[in-house]
């Protein structure tokens, strides 16, 4: 066999293997999409129907209205946006202090912030839950957002980025009489948009996918986030039995926002991943 034929065969094999992988990765989702369009009768038919069914409108409508996923989507969106914005703001201020000021115990302060990486929420969840209940934040957005506001990752990333910006820029800003905050928002932030964008997409998806904490602090559906709805739609249906068409429709709805962000902002994602590895 000549070199060329061998190479062609190898390329063909690579394509075939890649296509198998792509299908294997996508197949649960494809099946969920098919089921989300089927009526209970179609889902319970044997052998199962591998074609789109007749009940897409009903399933998505029931998920949206009967299971209040519409309301929960709004809640999730609100919370993810608030937390992402809060994290960015607070981390930017912290990084500004760490890079452009001199104050006592600076390394120690930075260390204390970084140390929070070792304490994931589940480790402190029992007293944290009690604490937010004691101060009257039970079932509120305060409890759902504020505990997430500080970000060691964010402070670290912005600090690294600020340190890579030439010192002459800060000097020039000071000569021009800019105060620290004006320097931050008019000069540093525009120079950091890439880092902020990368941080933004990662944090948005992270917040969107939160499950345990909302499950604990929010009772009832009106303020609940959409992830927790997965618990309910896979337990009961409108007639008592689980309605898998509705359940799959609900799962797909909950998946759409992070997926859209992923496909639209893939570059930011990749940059965010690269940054997260540096820690």
């Amino acid at each position: 066999m000549g070199y060329k034929t061998k190479k062609k065969l190898l390329t063909g094999l690579t394509h075939i293997l890649l296509i198998i992988c792509v299908i294997a990765v996508a197949s649960p989702m494809i099946w969920a999409i098919i089921a989300s369009t089927q009526s209970p009768g179609e889902i319970y038919s044997y052998p199962p129907k591998f074609s789109l069914g007749s009940s897409a409108k009903r399933n998505f409508g029931m998920a949206w209205n009967y299971f209040d996923i519409g309301i929960m989507m709004r809640n999730s969106l609100l919370i993810a946006v608030i937390v992402t914005a809060g994290k960015i703001l607070i981390s930017l201020l912290g990084a500004l202090a760490l890079v452009y000021f001199r104050f006592p115990l600076q390394p120690f302060v930075f260390f204390i912030i970084l140390l929070t990486l070792m304490i994931p929420i589940p480790v402190i969840i029992v007293p944290l839950f009690r604490f937010v209940s004691d101060i009257g934040w039970g079932n509120s957005y305060w409890a759902l957002t504020l505990p997430f506001f500080a970000s060691a990752t964010g402070t670290y990333l912005f600090r690294q980025h600020f340190m890579s910006i030439p010192g002459t820029i800060a000097e020039a800003a000071r000569v021009d009489g800019a105060g620290p905050l004006r320097f931050l928002f008019q000069i540093l932030v525009p120079m950091s948009l890439n880092t902020i964008g990368a941080f933004c997409v990662i944090q948005f998806v992270y917040m969107w996918n939160q499950y345990l904490w909302p499950l604990l602090v929010i009772s009832g559906r009106r303020r609940q986030v959409v992830q927790v709805a997965m618990r309910q739609i896979t337990t009961v249906g409108p007639d008592g039995l689980i309605d898998w068409g509705i359940a799959m429709a609900g799962s797909l709805i909950a998946l759409i926002p992070p997926l859209i962000i992923f496909f639209l902002l893939q570059e930011q994602f990749m940059r965010g991943f690269a940054l997260s590895q540096e820690k």
């Binding site: 990765v25 996918n209 499950y211």
Partner: peptide, 8 residues
């Protein structure tokens, strides 16, 4: 599938 949550 990175974008998927564990619950979904």
């Amino acid at each position: 599938p990175y974008a998927l949550s564990p619950a979904v």
